[in-house]
Design a protein around this nucleic acid. Structure first.
Lengths: 344, 344
DNA sequence: TTGAAAGCGTTACCAT
DNA sequence: ATGGTAACGCTTTCAA
């Protein structure tokens, strides 16, 4: 393996000079620089990141922690993050909470020393986790769920839900149901329970009553949502519209409606939140959020912090950024034509 | 930051002994071990992975290279891989090709020295890339697309397509169309073009003719597939069934059918390949593949190679593993009831 | 502008 | 079984 010493030898300078040249930092005589660069190129030299890290104390790696990857939102943010990090000369260490006991703690110690910073995607943390994070002194940026006092990029979940409900009410719906996580105890799998709370609030604001049996708890998947919503749709009295906490779950509702034999939107209006890649093609009405933008923002905020460590008070980005959302009305929502005929 | 020296001091032994104890390798007096462990626990000592890497030459990090993350298949394998790696004490460095020029090369040099091995998910590589990889001497395992002579885990794409076609023919279909990538030039975005080739082969084997205009090229997304398949479905003569190269694209076909007003499966049968999470709930007939298993297998094969580096000829896993696939007939495929009435 | 040399925190070899 | 001590490959003072 070719080391910095080889380059130094070939260029006829000291390793210190090679290091300086390749770092572009301090001044180096143009002609010296020329020779060094030539030597490095000649030898296909690439500095050992390991040695560099040990000597400099910075790894140029950022950890991204997410509950799991198989959900569209996470996969999409991560792609955006990776791209942005790569452009900035950083690598991405992916940490998933999948398959871990919810209470096993995040074990930041295991990777904290490997990275310069952490981007946490919707990961809840126990007090112990937070304490650990602070103790380690690693910069953190949260995406989605707030994480202590760290910078955060997110959407206004309550507003998203309100917009959705307003849309449905505007169409004439009065009997509205909801599927989504309402229980936040399964910590590491949960997503802002705010959406569920916002649902109740939005209905109340509109002067509509919230029927408890029309707000069902579900895992954040299409299958689960379909199963959970089925009884509600088969009941004597069923809602004329259902809002799902995510498009994934909305697709589940679509499935349930299909196998029950309810026409969408004639017999049932369905809405989601997110604007999943499939939403357009399925004609799903939803609330759009720019997921990639959130990833990009998270990266700039983190890099900003990393730079600030070197040159304090050099921050350019707001400490918390709210990304706007907006309604996309497609074909799964319409005026309620019929008043809930006996289901089935 | 607490270092190995602190632990050694507290335990009253040399750093060498601490290193040995924590590594479990060579023998250490039980009582000494006890003291060291206590000291380490007392100080919350965690070895610096950076220093360890530099000294030992092994990073305990594996790179996973994928075209992008926002596709269900990739996201799912990656989750499985991460989980498996974590269990084995390894971390995962995620490299995406998203947003890179297709011909920009994979730039393995940029991360090769950071990792002990590489898992490549459906990434095509130029000869230059392959040469580079070999030169770097990093163990590689390929998932999906074959990569030179490296170990590989994959499904039999041709068989999958054949099974699908057989299913359709068994239902009585004779006019069968296909959507998927047929052009493999857009290298870093392509997936086994084998599926497309297999489609033609399967039809020919069955004695059916392949109408060129019924085999359309498309990006590997629902939207693209929907757009690409629309003209085919609106044409005077249209197929009675369509096989998509992936469930994602099949969902696109479902969308196109919906907005054109074709009933599925009465007017059109639709099949996919993969058994995407949404397939069940959408009632999509498809060919199932166990994606997580492929991820797990890839990890064992790679770890096997890493161990073999230490203790040569110590391999336990076959050099190439083929994961089985099988038909799941759901509700989007049926006997062709009508013979292609004028579209629209 | 350049070079010498002291770290950075571990591992692993060689003695003992 | 344990300790001393060269590496590992680079960065970064400190001098020159």
């Amino acid at each position: 393996m070719t080391t910095i010493a080889d380059v130094a030898a070939l260029a006829g300078v000291s390793v210190a000079t090679v290091s300086r040249t390749l770092h572009g930092s301090s001044r180096v005589d143009p002609r010296t620089r020329e020779r060094v660069l030539a030597a490095a190129a000649e030898l296909d030299y690439v500095a050992s990141p390991t040695a560099t890290s040990l000597a400099s104390g910075r790894t140029h790696v950022v950890a991204v922690v997410a509950p799991l990857m198989s959900r569209w939102f996470f996969a999409t943010v991560v792609t955006a993050i990776e791209q942005e990090l790569r452009a900035a000369g950083y690598h991405l260490l992916l940490i998933t909470l999948d398959g871990q006991a919810a209470d096993s703690g995040l074990q930041y110690e295991m990777f904290a020393k490997r990275v310069d910073g952490i981007i946490a995607l919707n990961v809840p943390a126990t007090d112990a986790d937070l304490a650990m994070l602070h103790r380690l002194g690693v910069p953190v940026v949260a995406v989605g769920m707030a994480l202590d006092r760290w910078p955060r990029v997110h959407i206004d979940d309550a507003a998203a839900v309100r917009t959705a409900i307003t849309h449905l009410i505007g169409l004439g719906h009065r009997e509205i149901g909801y599927v989504g996580t309402t229980d936040t105890s399964v910590a590491h799998m949960s997503t802002p329970g705010e959406r569920s709370a916002a649902f109740r609030a939005a209905l109340r604001e509109a002067g509509l009553s919230v029927r408890p049996e029309w707000a069902v708890d579900s895992d954040w998947t299409a299958d689960a949502a379909a199963r959970k919503v089925e009884p509600m749709l088969r009941a004597e009295q069923r809602p004329t519209a259902i809002l799902a906490g995510s498009d994934e779950m909305a697709i589940g509702v679509l499935g349930a409606a299909r196998w029950i034999g309810l026409r969408v939107p004639e017999d049932l209006s369905v809405m989601g939140i997110d604007d999943h890649t499939f939403a357009a093609v399925l004609g799903l009405s939803t609330i759009h959020q720019d997921v990639r933008a959130q990833g990009r923002l998270a990266v700039s905020m983190l890099l900003d912090d990393l730079r600030a460590e070197a040159a304090p008070a050099d921050r350019t980005v707001a400490r918390t950024v709210e990304v706007p959302t907006y309604l996309i009305a497609r074909e799964t929502t319409a005026h309620p034509e019929t008043t809930a005929p006996p289901g089935g």
